[in-house]
Design a protein around this nucleic acid. Structure first.
Lengths: 189, 189
DNA sequence: TATGAAGATGAGTGACCACTCACACACCGC
DNA sequence: GCGGTGTGTGAGTGGTCACTCATCTTCATA
């Protein structure tokens, strides 16, 4: 009487990992590594905490996976934007800059980035290496596609970091001369 | 037989606060807001945890005080450097840039800054406001003393943010082209 | 020198955290 | 249909966390 299920009921471990890491990115972005309990991540991913620890033996390893995922998404978006030819008047560097500014509008991406920088300065070497790797790959991507180097590259990346920090404290909504001066016109074009 | 103490044995609450906030800056810099137990801060300050909570009713309020202190120190150091006339060939902006680079050599200052940026993007509004205030005051200080504005100011601050992030992940010690390219010659002059 | 205000703490308290373990169910090749 | 492998969890466990409370000591001063 009970019909056999047409599809598999259980997920594969790889599928679960996928969902779990995605949930981890969002959760860690919100409260940081130490501020996010594994129970919360497991609940968001729809699995038990016990299974979370089977898929990732330590919280730290899950955080590393989340950092990797986050930087991969950033890289994909920026590459995509650079190769998009719908704005033919712009250089690849300009397109990537606009794409990055757009990515910062997403609170999860923004906060994950800032949390990653803070975590990278901590003492967990696996985390620091993950951030170095992700950040380095991003820089290399920009350099390779745009051909920028030296001072031009530094200036581009520096502006990106300023935008990130300003967005993190929601500077555009601060009613003060310094905030208007720094956010300037670079936030909306 | 027991001689009366020449000086007061008990500290005033203001003195204790001073020591406590200083200890809090160091501790929070190391592990962030959520990663730092109040017991550890109290121990470093040489007082009981119970008294910590008498001086600051919540951990969050102590963090705000630590952020204030940290930005005040940054401001003092930068102002001092700008007014120092021992390198007469340099502009005020250049002197401030070198002073900031020197400040980043101190791990506590560096990490505190990165932790503050991450914390500012969180949901605790008192913390976010403290970072906005500290950061804004710093920008206004630079602007007032150097007279820089518009693009020049933005570029200066952006470079500072890049240096901060790179120092946070100890980029100068990474053996890769992108790291050498970004750290460039701006780190040692 | 009595008194009250201020400085300071030991000993909790309930909640929460990272992580574990024994066990159950689903799947699949034979 | 059976046995082994992979998917999944309920129910802990020991430790730690932010915060509290009753109580003590030190000090200024009247």
């Amino acid at each position: 009487m009970i019909p056999p299920p047409a599809t598999r009921q259980l997920s594969t471990a790889a599928e679960r990992r996928e969902v779990l890491v995605e949930a981890a990115v969002a959760a860690f972005a919100e409260h940081g590594f130490h501020g996010t309990p594994t129970t919360e991540i497991a609940k968001a991913a729809g699995i038990s905490q016990a299974y979370l620890f089977r898929l990732f033996p330590t919280k730290s390893e899950l955080y590393v996976a989340a950092v990797d995922r986050c930087y991969r998404r950033l890289g994909d978006a920026i590459r995509e934007a650079a190769e998009d030819a719908s704005a033919p008047g712009e250089t690849a560097l300009e397109r990537m800059g606009h794409a990055y500014a757009a990515l910062l509008q997403d609170p999860t991406t923004l906060r994950a980035t800032l949390q990653a920088f803070a975590a990278a300065s901590g003492e967990d070497l696996a985390i620091r290496d993950a951030v170095r790797r992700g950040y380095g790959d991003l820089i290399e991507l920009v350099q390779r596609i745009s051909g920028a180097e030296g001072e031009e590259l530094r200036e581009f990346v520096a502006r990106g970091m300023l935008m990130t920090v300003l967005a993190g404290m929601d500077a555009p909504s601060i009613d003060a001369p310094w905030a208007r001066e720094l956010c300037g016109d670079k936030f909306d074009d």
